[in-house]
Design a protein around this nucleic acid. Structure first.
Length: 510
RNA sequence: GAGGAUGUAGCUCAGUCGGUAGAGCAACGGACUUUUAAUCCGUAGGUCGCGGGUUCGAGCCCCGCCAUCCUCACCA
């Protein structure tokens, strides 16, 4: 079978006195850095003097013709050391061309029998696609103008006993791409870069927060009460205490306790878990950022949100206009701002206080409005009719107070909550409040929220300790939540959340 | 949870009307010191997702199950 010949080569490599699993390999340069040294390659004329080589990327460039034009000489370049996985191999008798890949790029190796000697050439004949090899050699160009390392010494660094995917098509089966992410990262163009961009985005966010004096903390992920959001939790059990515990569905309530405790600027960037459906925009575990700033409000958070996103874009490069599917998202600041009611008027064509018109529209959209509060009807219309039209980026301001249980009301209008959500391509990316710090009102709002829940969500409980913490005094504060996975989707052009989560949840197979 | 699509060699994919299972890449043997998905000659490789059924005969038709993808519902 396919493994047998590779295992045979493994034995033959060992028989050559080489460890087929490799070892420490110091002082090698990344292929991207080596490629950047192309300009150091020159043409040394026998008649004396050195010529720089022309731009060799040009299609159809013929180095042979160029050389005969300029007279006899040799190509000289810097000595380099590289390591990478063999992704293509073209043996032509006593000469082998290899393409190797590290996480910065690909480069061609020229391995000639005469040039590397009998021993290394015997080793090179045992190479398979997928093996990891090292090389010492001179950077130069082949006759066809391809930047190439002309090997002088080869090093074997790791055998691949399994064959790689098809060399041209790679892995296309979406199931295999997720189950074998290690192959997807190597062989699907753009995948590794996207995940590296995710890291840069998260780092840019942390840098922005650190520069503003925020501290990062780690709250508990096992909660006795799953609070801070409305979602079904995962349930687990602690043996020694013999209690049910819930994986956290939000970061909010513990971070606010820290506000009470005097951590004036605090954030957590971490995983939350929601026992809900899986879709191109939902994974059961996903990454949230929550930020709390004492003596700020939701406008403080809006300004911070915009700065973090711009810093993330700067970190990955490519400007503020980003393709996303068939659309282009324009992140050029400042992001648009509009009130909730204005957007209802604009996109639904209905005045936000016109109860009858909203009810009519809700019914048309399949939502029976009878006996429902105006804000509930409006909220339905907003979600169904307005949100999909918010291609954004747009900050939606001043939500109806009755759907915001953790939010301070607007001073001039208690029917409005000091809350914004940032929408981009119909997706909610950020959600921020001026945090409610009135303990009695908070307790009352929790209570009415719990009363409204259906039977099967009765695991939601009042968090009395949180309310007690508020009674000890939480400074007025702005709070922000950001869905990191979705933000990364938008910034990197990914159409599915599975393209930005390294190991999305899949049903296990034996 | 509902509906639709897909599942054939390690990978990417064909497979007509129900009649002996196909290609390319990868692999193996041979030729080749400037190739570019190298090329040329030859060889080998299959539980057609799993389980039933219909039929003289099933990759193909029927039933059930499994997995993945998409849409919807829940949700961010």
């Amino acid at each position: 079978m396919h493994e047998a010949s590779r295992r045979e080569k493994l034995r033959e490599i060992a028989a050559l006195g080489v460890d087929p699993w490799g070892g420490r390999f110091d002082d090698r340069q990344w292929i991207g850095d080596i490629r950047a040294r192309a300009a150091e390659v020159t043409y040394r004329l026998e008649s004396g003097g050195e010529l720089p080589l022309p731009e060799l990327q040009a299609e159809g460039f013929d180095l042979r013709a160029w050389k005969s034009q300029h007279g006899a000489g040799t190509i000289v370049g810097p000595a380099v050391r590289a390591a990478g996985r063999i992704v293509l191999q073209r043996p032509t008798g006593k000469l082998i061309f290899l393409n190797i890949r590290d996480w910065t790029g690909d480069i061609q190796l020229f391995v000639g029998q005469k040039q590397v000697g009998e021993a290394d050439f015997a080793l090179a004949k045992q190479f398979d696609l997928g093996d990891i090899v090292g090389v010492d050699g001179q950077l130069g160009y082949t006759n066809t103008g391809e930047l190439t390392i002309f090997a002088e010494k080869l090093h074997f660094l790791c055998k691949a006993v399994e064959p790689p995917p098809e060399k041209h098509h790679g892995l296309t089966d979406p199931e295999l791409r997720q189950r074998m992410r290690y192959l997807d990262l190597i062989y699907t163009p753009g995948v590794l870069l996207r995940f590296l961009d995710r890291t840069k985005i998260v780092h840019a966010i942390r840098r922005t927060l650190a520069a503003d004096g925020f501290v990062e903390v780690e709250g508990p992920t096992l909660h006795a009460i799953a609070g801070g959001a409305a979602a079904r939790p995962f349930i687990t059990h602690h043996n020694t205490l013999d209690i049910h515990l819930y994986l956290r569905i939000a970061l909010e309530l513990h971070l606010k306790r820290l506000l009470v405790g005097g951590m004036e600027r605090v954030y957590e960037l971490g995983r939350v878990y929601r026992n809900e459906g899986i879709s191109p925009r939902h994974n059961p575990e996903f990454t949230m950022l929550e930020v709390y700033q004492a003596f700020g409000n939701y406008e403080t958070m809006m300004e911070l949100t915009e700065r973090m996103i711009l810093a993330a874009l700067d970190a990955i490069g490519g400007g503020y206009r980003r393709p996303w599917g068939d659309a282009v998202i324009d992140f050029a600041p400042p992001f648009a701002r509009a009130t909730y009611d204005e957007l209802v008027q604009q996109h639904a064509g209905v005045a936000a206080d016109d109860h009858a018109a909203l009810a009519r529209l809700a019914r048309e959209l399949g939502f029976p409005p009878e006996g429902k509060h105006l804000d509930v009807i409006k909220s339905f219309v907003f979600e169904e009719h307005v949100e999909p039209r918010l291609t954004g980026p747009v900050f939606v301001l001043d939500y109806p107070a009755s759907i915001c249980p953790l939010t301070k009301r607007c001073r001039d209008n208690p029917q409005r909550a000091q809350r914004f959500e940032l929408f981009i391509q119909g997706m909610e990316i950020a959600n921020a409040y001026t945090e409610l710090n009135d303990p009695d009102l908070q307790e009352e709002l929790f209570r009415t929220q719990l009363e409204g829940l259906p039977e099967d969500e009765s695991m939601a409980r009042m968090d009395h300790d949180f309310v007690r913490a508020l009674r000890h005094g939480m400074p007025p504060a702005g709070g922000l939540g950001v869905g990191i996975d979705r933000l990364v989707m938008l910034l990197t052009g990914a159409q599915s959340i599975r393209e930005v989560i390294l190991f999305p949840l899949l049903r296990p197979v034996d």
